[in-house]
Simulated assay, not measured.
Amino acid sequence: MIVKTPIMFAKRRKLMRNFLKVGFKDSLNIFVSGGCGGNGLPKFGGIGGFGGNVSVIAKEGISLDQVYKQNKSLRFIAGNGGNSSANCLRGAQGEDIKLEVPVGVSLVTELGKKLGELDKENEELIIAKGGTPGHSKNGYLGTEGQAYPVKLDLKLIADIGLVGFPNAGKSSLLSAISHAKPKVANYPFTTVRPHLGMIHYPDHRQISMADLPGLIEGAHTNRGMGHKFLKHVERTKLLLLVVDIHGFQLGPQYPFRTCLDTVLLLNKELELYKPELIDKPSLIIINKMDVEGAEEKYNQIKEDLKNLSRIDCEEDIRSEKFLKFRDILPVSVKNRAEDIALIKEKLRKQLDVIADEEANDESSLDLYQDMREKNKERGPKLV
Rank of each mutant, 00 (worst) to 15 (best):
G247A: 07
L260W: 03
L270I: 09
V263A: 08
Y254H: 13
Q249H: 03
Y273T: 01
K268C: 10
D261V: 06
K274T: 00
P275F: 03
G251P: 00
L265S: 13
P255C: 10
G247P: 01
L250D: 01
P255A: 13
Q249T: 09
P275H: 02
L264Q: 10
C259L: 11
Y254C: 10
P255R: 13
L270H: 04
L264C: 15
G251N: 14
P275M: 05
G247L: 08
G251C: 08
N267D: 14
E276A: 13
P252C: 05
L277K: 04
Y254T: 09
L260N: 02
R257H: 12
L250A: 08
C259H: 03
Y273E: 04
L272C: 07
G247D: 07
E271F: 06
P255I: 02
E276S: 13
K274P: 00
Y273H: 02
L272T: 04
L270T: 03
N267G: 08
L266Y: 01
C259G: 11
E271A: 08
E271N: 07
D261T: 07
F248W: 07
L250K: 05
E271I: 04
Y273K: 03
T262N: 07
L266I: 14
T262A: 13
L270D: 04
L272M: 13
L265I: 13
L277S: 07
N267Q: 10
F248T: 01
P275T: 03
P255F: 06
F256R: 15
L266G: 05
Q249W: 00
R257V: 07
L264D: 06
Q249L: 06
P255K: 14
Y254P: 00
L277R: 02
L272E: 11
K268E: 07
K268L: 14
N267S: 08
Q249C: 12
Q249N: 12
L265A: 14
Y273V: 02
P252Q: 11
Y273N: 02
P252Y: 12
F256C: 09
Q249K: 15
L260A: 05
K268S: 09
T262G: 10
Y254Q: 13
R257L: 15
E271K: 08
G247F: 03
F248D: 01
P252S: 12
Q253P: 00
Q253Y: 06
K274R: 12
E276N: 07
T258I: 09
E276D: 13
L277P: 01
L266S: 09
Y254M: 14
